[in-house]
Design a protein around this nucleic acid. Structure first.
Lengths: 253, 253
DNA sequence: GGATCGTTTCGGCGGCGCCCGAAGTGTCGC
DNA sequence: GCGACACTTCGGGCGCCGCCGAAACGATCC
């Protein structure tokens, strides 16, 4: 007995669904081109790039890059700021960064390690620690997240949320008050899946403030102009005192 | 003084980034076609559709639908099951559903209300209550989420997580034990943004088990063959007893 | 003022991909 | 067995889109 198909053709292609298929397709099409995708991934470092930089990065003519940037901006994924003869663009906001994370998290295989000494060194630095839009990722981000969870500051069992103890810890230990954690509709804590570790690390406003604070206190520092960060000696001491993290054992240095 | 652009062209288009731009583009391209997007949105009801149903739904020839389904399946978004002369397809898993949610949540305007009596009636039923892949959405889903939060069963302040009280409540009140909530890497609680309410509702394994249980106990029932569900009189009573929800006032009936 | 640089607009080329109809394969009902 | 049905494969047509180079524009530097 094969059951006859019973699903109702509830509606046509036109806007009957949760959102019109046309809109979804239009959004997806923005990222469906390798060059535009490369732009967005580059901009995941959270900073503003000029049109020319992106063109060079993706190896296309400036005119081509210009057209792509216009599409991405009009599509709401990018925000632009004209300054003199430069066109600075960056991701339109945390929500766009989250969207890109969701998508990249679905890319099946962790990419194979790069060849070459220089590339390998840069890759290793990125794996140790980096920014992911506005929060920390890499082994550093995961280590902090794990330590916070182990100390009952973060709850990963029931989802991904700061505990009351976690909020106190951010306030007392790092001076990140409740006000700094409130920011519109953005969640305070959110899990962001890491592409090197394949494990979640702290994102949301708490993750962003934490990253800000660590940079302010010079516990971490940016390496060159990229998204990689390294732990300073002061930072290693502080993480040990605050969270009991052994930075050498965790492979953070 | 205009600062000179300082971002380093850290690498070419090739796989230097978090994930190769080509892979991201390939994934996005799967959803960049209106017909494929319509398929995926239809499949967000969590059930299996036949190829013919989807073709009729999206108003394309069977041959066209067949090709699209092959691409979506090979791309990892859909899972298929051949049964006799039918090809049943459904979303490949909760992660794909989450991906689609992330994308649809980014579609700017809540779609304008549909014209026509029949369409308006169906739309109103969907707004009252429906399934979203494997959990509850619409006013019903939001009302349950809000009530759980108000009663301290769910923590939305620090993120989105079940509290200890919440786990007890699921176990004692609904017979959903800790074992049922554990399911690989999937989070127990997760916020899913609603397209009608623009507010989060409970997803994750807890949301899925909760939906299962409500269907089992006949507290909710599917309307026809779509994704809309309605609250039964027994269900209204139970929700009032368990969560203090006034279903009439909440617009659930 | 003129030269330079970053960016934009335009034309044109090439290719991919979406679509359909027609024909073919396998399954089910009689 | 034969027809009906669901689906798939194949060719071919059409349109869109990404790419570039050339030329125009505006800001900056000298």
């Amino acid at each position: 007995m094969t059951p006859a198909p019973t699903n109702a053709p509830t509606g046509p292609n036109t806007p009957t669904g949760p959102a019109s298929a046309a809109e979804l397709a239009r959004l997806a099409a923005l990222l469906a081109d390798p060059t535009r995708a490369a732009f967005c991934l580059a901009l995941l470092d959270g900073r503003a790039w000029t049109a020319g930089e992106l063109a060079a990065y993706a190896q296309v003519a400036p005119s081509t890059a210009s057209e792509h940037l216009t599409r991405l901006t009009e599509g709401g994924l990018l925000a632009e700021r004209r300054q003199g003869r430069h066109r600075y663009v960056q991701l339109a906001g945390p929500r766009v960064a989250e969207l890109l994370e969701s998508l990249t998290a679905h890319l099946d295989p962790p990419t194979t390690p790069p060849r070459g000494l220089r590339a390998a060194g840069a890759s290793a630095a990125l794996a140790r620690g980096r920014t992911c839009y506005d929060h920390l990722a890499g082994r550093l981000g995961v280590a902090i997240t794990d330590a916070m969870t182990a100390r009952g500051l973060l709850d990963q069992d029931g989802g991904f949320a700061l505990t009351d103890a976690g909020r106190d810890w951010l306030g007392d230990g790092l001076g990140i008050g409740a006000a700094a954690l409130r920011s519109g509709r953005r969640p305070q804590a959110r899990g962001c899946l890491d592409w090197t570790e394949r494990r979640p690390h702290l994102a949301g406003t708490a993750g962003a403030r934490l990253c800000d604070r660590l940079l302010e206190r010079r516990w971490i520092r940016r390496i060159g102009s990229g998204r990689a960060v390294r732990l300073t000696p002061d930072g290693a001491t502080a993480l040990h005192e605050l969270l009991g993290i052994d930075s050498a054992a965790a492979g953070l240095v």
